[in-house]
């Protein structure tokens, strides 16, 4: 049989999927064991016990100085910033994208501007944000918005262009005006596509969050890993990275489930067109 026609069955599929993860773990364990055999106080590839200690210290024991449990404190502040940033970007993207996608006058006014703004590297404007809105929460949330909003607007405009022209004509022959077309025909079809767009922008949003936290912050997941970097505390950094990855994965999964539940028509419609 040709290779393109050979398919793993369910069990081998799962085994194969697990393979790279297991391989990385084994490679780490070997490297760690070799280094620790040479130097028991090696900090670069800590062993399992150091991880357990670190996780216990960060996630389950209150901090001696403040009484906070650091992991949960960091997770809470980071997620709050991320959620606020993404929510503002999504709302703004929906509003501007819808207006610019439907109304040629708005498009003429905004599309070139948004295109240019989306080319500005968001991290390059971070100093400006720190100067203008200060070092508090606002600058971090603004950075996420600045980074994600132009992409969402451009993406939604393209998605509206992709809606068959016939639908807009048809709605007009049913007596719709511009506003009712926007809320009854375009908005409901754009919302599931907005979720797709947010999913794709989760990665950049985390990137902006962690950068902002690394530079000026007092708590947050990004702040913590950059703080403990000074002590080469790999036993803290690696679990934090894994935790961030897990959070990111769960958010993506949650959005996917939301899309399927809230817009049951979407999957079939997308496959059919």
């Amino acid at each position: 049989m040709r290779l393109i026609n050979r398919r793993p069955d369910r069990t081998s599929w799962m085994l194969l999927a697990a393979l790279p993860f297991v391989a990385v773990l084994i490679a780490y364990a070997l490297g760690s064991a070799v280094r620790l055999a040479e130097n028991p106080s090696d900090k670069l590839l800590p062993g399992l016990t150091s991880f357990v200690d670190a996780i216990d210290r960060m996630a389950f024991t209150p901090d001696k100085r403040t009484g906070d449990i650091l992991l949960w404190l960091d997770t809470g502040t980071s997620l709050m910033r991320l959620a606020a940033g993404i929510a503002i970007a999504a709302a703004g993207g929906l509003l501007v994208g819808l207006a610019a996608g439907l109304l040629p006058y708005v498009r003429a006014t905004l599309a070139p501007f948004v295109t240019v703004v989306s080319m500005v590297p968001p991290l390059a404007v971070l100093p400006i944000l720190f100067i203008m809105v200060g070092l508090g929460e606002a600058s971090k949330i603004t950075l996420i918005v600045v980074g994600v909003l132009p992409c969402l607007i451009r993406d939604l405009m393209l998605k509206i262009d992709d809606l068959p022209r016939q639908q807009l004509i048809k709605a007009q022959t049913l007596g719709a005006n511009s506003w009712t077309i926007a809320i009854r025909v375009v908005l409901p079809q754009i919302l599931p596509r907005l979720i797709d767009s947010i999913r794709l922008n989760l990665g950049p949003a985390w990137l902006f969050l962690i950068s902002a936290e690394a530079i000026a912050s007092e708590s947050g997941l990004g702040y913590r890993i950059f703080l403990v970097r000074r002590y080469l505390a790999m036993d803290v950094i690696l679990p934090y990275v894994a935790w961030i990855t897990l959070l990111c994965f769960l958010m993506d999964l949650g959005l996917r489930v939301l899309q399927r539940r809230a817009f049951p028509w979407f999957e079939d419609a997308r496959a059919g067109s």
């Binding site: 048809k170 007009q172 049913l174 067109s273």
Partner: peptide, 29 residues
């Protein structure tokens, strides 16, 4: 406008509405 109705070869109906919802939409708009 509503004085002239249309049926295209494709994409005449709205994928996000049920069959009933698609017809109801005309009355609702």
């Amino acid at each position: 406008g509503p004085d002239r109705g249309v049926v295209f070869q494709r994409y005449s109906v709205f994928p996000h509405l049920t069959v009933l919802g698609n017809v109801l939409l005309g009355a609702e708009l």
